[in-house]
Simulated scan of single mutants.
Amino acid sequence: MDEMMTRYIFKHMRITESRLDMMGKDLVRQVKLNKRTTRFAVAATASIFVLGYIQSKITNEIAELREEVDELKKVKGE
């Protein structure tokens, strides 16, 4: 009886230990995934800001060129 109980206890201790090891590996994988996701989010956000800046710069250049074209049309008398 004692031997059966001892086997039962140690068997379940091994099972618990292997499950804890798997959970530890899963946590390491989750940390890596979280880091990658954070890097992607930062890069995407920075890209959005840069594209917005470039777009506003291009819009300003277009407005300046339109004004210059209007001035040239006035000079030519069109």
Rank of each mutant, 00 (worst) to 15 (best):
K11Q: 13
R39T: 08
E71T: 02
Y8R: 10
F40T: 04
E68N: 07
S47G: 09
A41L: 12
E3M: 06
Q55M: 08
D21K: 10
N34G: 04
T16W: 10
E67H: 11
I15R: 03
E68S: 11
M4I: 11
F40S: 09
E64H: 08
N34S: 15
R66E: 15
A41I: 08
N34L: 14
M1C: 05
K32C: 01
R39W: 00
R29H: 07
I62V: 15
M5H: 07
E17H: 14
N60C: 00
M22L: 15
S18Y: 02
V42P: 00
E64G: 01
F40D: 04
N34R: 09
V28H: 01
K74G: 02
D2H: 03
M5P: 00
L33S: 11
M4A: 13
Y53N: 00
T6F: 03
E78P: 00
Y8A: 07
L27P: 02
E71I: 05
E3P: 02
R7A: 12
K57A: 04
T37R: 05
E67V: 01
M13R: 06
I58G: 01
V69H: 01
K25W: 07
H12M: 10
M5N: 14
M5T: 12
I48V: 14
A43S: 09
Q30I: 02
L33R: 14
K73N: 09
D26E: 15
T45Y: 07
D21I: 11
T38D: 09
K76D: 07
E3A: 15
Q30N: 08
A43I: 04
E67A: 14
Y53Q: 04
K11H: 06
S47W: 05
R39V: 06
G24A: 12
K74D: 09
T38R: 03
K57F: 00
D21M: 06
T59Y: 00
N60P: 01
Y8M: 02
E64V: 10
D70H: 04
Y53I: 08
K32M: 12
M23Y: 12
S56L: 14
V28A: 04
E71Q: 13
E64A: 12
R39G: 03
E78G: 01
G24E: 08
E61K: 09
S47I: 05
A41N: 03
H12E: 08
M22C: 05
D70K: 13
F49P: 05
R19I: 14
G52F: 02
M13F: 08
V69A: 09
Q30C: 06
I9T: 06
Q30Y: 05
K11Y: 10
Y53M: 05
G52W: 00
A43D: 07
T6I: 12
R19P: 02
G77I: 02
G52P: 02
D2Q: 06
M13W: 07
N34Y: 07
R36W: 02
T37W: 06
R14Y: 05
F10L: 08
K32N: 13
R66C: 04
A63V: 10
